[in-house]
């Protein structure tokens, strides 16, 4: 049973929002893990990361997101789902801006606006 085009249920919206939170949290945790300059190389790098919480926090977010995403995609068409999921890119950029002080250049603002516009078109028009 497919919901009619344009009619997105509140369960779908809830799963979509939860996915944004978990994906952003996971990505930021992985950034904290991978960006550690004292981590060294090769096996030592992995050992260093495994001894710190960031890698595991990231994995935890991704495991839950995995289930949320399966539930989300089972309720809407895949082509619509992957497009709506692109909003994660915007959420991660904005989180990077606020948490790591990453600069939002004009090109980046344009990119964020275009992705958001695209997601809005898909969300409204199905």
């Amino acid at each position: 049973m497919m919901p009619a085009a344009g009619a997105i249920s509140s369960v779908v919206v809830g799963l979509w929002l939860l996915n944004i939170v978990l994906d952003t949290g996971g990505q930021l945790a992985f950034k904290a893990a991978a960006g550690d300059e004292h981590a060294g190389d090769g096996f030592a790098r992995w050992k260093h990361m495994a001894a710190r919480p960031w890698l595991w926090l990231g994995i935890g977010c991704y495991v839950i997101e995995f289930l949320v995403w399966i539930a989300f995609l089972s309720l809407i068409p895949l082509s619509e789902g992957v497009l709506l999921g692109s909003i994660n890119i915007v959420a991660i950029m904005l989180a990077g801006r606020f948490l790591f002080g990453e600069e939002l250049t004009r090109l980046r603002v344009l990119g964020i606006a275009l992705v958001t516009l695209g997601v809005a078109i898909v969300g409204i028009g199905g």
């Binding site: 497009l83 344009l110 275009l114 992705v115 997601v119 078109i121």
Partner: peptide
């Protein structure tokens, strides 16, 4: 067997253009 309606095609084009901008940035 999904259908690519106008909203999905237009939305995808905007999203891809946005991703290219972000990659260039």
């Amino acid at each position: 067997g999904e259908h690519l309606n106008l909203a999905r095609v237009l939305g995808a084009m905007a999203i891809i253009a946005g991703i290219v901008c972000l990659g260039l940035a």
